[in-house]
Nucleic acid binder design. Structure first.
Length: 572
DNA sequence: GCCGTTTTCGGCCCGACTGTTTTCAGTCG
């Protein structure tokens, strides 16, 4: 399938970049392969398809040489240069550069002088003192590399957005409590709303950085510490960087440390073409005069750009967009369209859920407990579903403020594509999400048929967690997603962005593609408890990253509009 | 290897911190 090809080629380009760097090749050539790899990663089209249709050359970073290498991959499944490079190095050498503190230069030196070709070789050489004659390998370096090998073997992954959000809020409130701290904010990939975060970047305005550094260093194991910058390891695993800047460069620092790297490179390139220089202290003209630095807005403005929201700062291409999407706001959502109650595997009663939803200002809440096949999740029989409907009806009669519970269900798409409740039952409900919960390892062709059949039934509103992936845990099932989007669009079925931090499914790029294929998007927390209502903002972030505006969101509709849409009475 | 509102050649983001350096290279983000 398309995604596997993209992933394979991404890996190949990354490895070519690493090999070239080891060889001491021109660093910009290395960067060209790295950039191409990033471009392919998560591309929502098949790279082979793009190549065959001649569209690849218009992708930024793909010039003549790289397009030709994609061609080799399409024809043979391999890239010649990659094969040559692989043959000229030990098979495990690239893992050396995964050791924190060890870059290409030192790895190449180790290989050239001592024949070290793997992390195991390195560990042995370090312990036996074989490296001490090499230039640049003092005692501290040896200790640091041994520690780095330990960290690498822990195999720590990027942390989930939800987890890092909470950690950041906690740390920021502690920093803000210091009298020496004027302002503290999170930057980096957390601010951009990436689904996982590799390290946390915090930014502080203070006229007394030494006090802030002292406090911060006490929070974890110190990796590095200077007058204005300190890095610690949180719980022995997760890196947190703190930078202290003066108030007048706060905007420039936020811009710089929010990234992404590609966005910053593009922005600095633009500054350079305007004979300016942009760094984390500000935007300066050729004479060194400060043109803008206090706020991000003025920096973008001086560069002739609108302020670009952090969630869209990814590839750098966003600088050239004719129009930025209208930034989705949490307040534009009228409700949450995927929740579970005590009736199946949730922890709260319908009354509690309704109360919490109203407290949060929702106009409606869809109760979507599991259908009967989900025995492990206490799925509802038809009889229990009907009884639940009666209770919901009574509750709705008791609300005087126009709030409404939607009587819904999360209905299993069974192995053959049929649904877990008969049509006459589905017809009675207010809202139906369908989902795959079993037999994940079907062939892509069979899975595509199954899902397409599932969403072709009448009375289906949403395909929930469409790919079934769980971040850092499982990749999700394979299917022809272009086909799924087409069928969903044809039948007016929305695709969900499941807001659970463990899922975020669809992801940002897939959601953008689904929207471009004509699908509506639905945000649902899949909450099994009241606290999980907090997941909705995570879904909003992903929707923003996908450039989705409120007009493409089911949650932007009133419940009356949802009902009419369900009855296919109006075309929304 | 890519790219072009100074350019088809000569640029390519740039600064903090570390360790071993005796003035700076390597790593990182």
């Amino acid at each position: 399938m398309a995604f596997e090809d993209n992933q394979q080629l991404t890996r190949i380009f990354e490895e070519i970049a690493d090999f070239l760097e080891l060889q001491g090749e021109n660093i910009f050539k290395v960067k060209a392969y790295q950039k191409a790899a990033r471009g392919l990663e998560g591309l929502e089209r098949s790279v082979c398809e793009l190549y065959s249709s001649g569209q690849l050359a218009s992708m930024p970073g793909f010039g003549k040489a790289l397009v030709e290498k994609v061609g080799q991959f399409v024809d043979t499944g391999q890239v010649e240069l990659h094969q040559q490079l692989k043959a000229s190095f030990p098979s495990e050498i690239l893992q050396l550069m995964d050791v924190p503190g060890l870059g290409a230069k030192k790895a190449a030196l180790l290989h050239r002088e001592l024949g070290i070709g793997s992390v195991d070789d390195l560990e042995k050489a370090l312990k036996e003192g074989l490296v001490t004659d090499l230039k640049g390998f003092g005692k501290k370096t040896v200790d640091k590399l041994l520690e780095g090998i330990g960290l690498l073997r822990q195999g720590e992954q990027r942390w989930l957005l939800g987890r890092v959000s909470q950690l950041a809020e906690d740390l920021l409130s502690r920093l803000r409590a210091l009298p020496e701290v004027e302002r503290a904010e999170a930057a980096g990939s957390l601010r951009r709303g990436k689904e996982t975060v590799g390290d946390l970047d915090l930014l502080v305005i203070s006229s007394r950085p030494e006090v802030v550094m002292e406090f911060f260093a006490s929070l974890g194991e110190v990796i590095g510490r200077g007058p204005t910058k300190c890095s610690i390891r949180w719980e022995g695993k997760f890196q947190i960087d703190l930078r202290c800047v003066p108030g007048e460069s706060f905007g420039a620092a936020m811009q710089y440390f929010t990234g992404s790297m590609d966005h910053n490179v593009a922005l600095r390139g633009r500054a350079k073409r305007l004979s300016c220089e942009l760094n984390e202290y500000g935007l300066f003209d050729a004479l060194g005069n400060n043109l803008a630095s206090r706020s991000e807005e003025e920096i973008y403005e001086r560069l002739g750009l609108p302020w670009i929201p952090p969630e869209l700062r990814e590839t750098g291409a966003e600088l050239e967009w004719e129009r930025l999407p209208e930034r989705l706001q949490l307040e534009q959502l009228n409700g949450n369209l995927h929740t579970h109650s005590l009736w199946s595997d949730g922890t709260d009663t319908l009354e509690q859920l309704a109360e919490e939803a109203q407290r949060r200002g929702y106009r409606y809440l869809a109760i979507t407990d599991h259908s009967r096949s989900m025995v492990v999740a206490n799925g509802l029989s038809i009889e229990r579903l009907m009884a639940q409907g009666q209770q919901i009806e009574r509750l709705n009669a008791s609300f005087s403020n126009g709030f409404r519970l939607l009587w819904g269900s999360e209905v299993d798409i069974l192995g053959d594509g049929s649904l877990d409740f008969p049509e006459e039952v589905l017809a009675r409900l207010d809202f139906v999400v369908v989902a795959v919960h079993s037999q994940f390892s079907m062939t892509p062709e069979a899975m595509t048929e199954r899902i397409c059949r599932g969403i072709s039934h009448p009375y289906v509103d949403v395909l929930a967690h469409p790919t079934g992936r769980k971040i850092n845990r499982r990749t999700g099932y394979q299917a022809d997603w272009e086909r799924v989007y087409a069928v969903a669009s044809e039948h007016g079925v929305a695709l969900e962005i499941n807001c659970s931090p463990r899922r975020l499914d669809l992801n940002d790029k897939a959601a953008r593609r689904a929207r471009d294929c004509g699908c509506m998007i639905s945000l649902g927390t899949d909450a099994h408890s009241l606290a999980e209502f907090d997941y909705l903002p995570l879904g909003v972030l992903q929707a923003r990253r996908a450039g989705i505006e409120v007009g493409s969101l089911l949650n932007g509709l009133s419940w009356e509009q949802l009902r009419k849409r369900r009855a296919r009475l109006v075309d929304v």
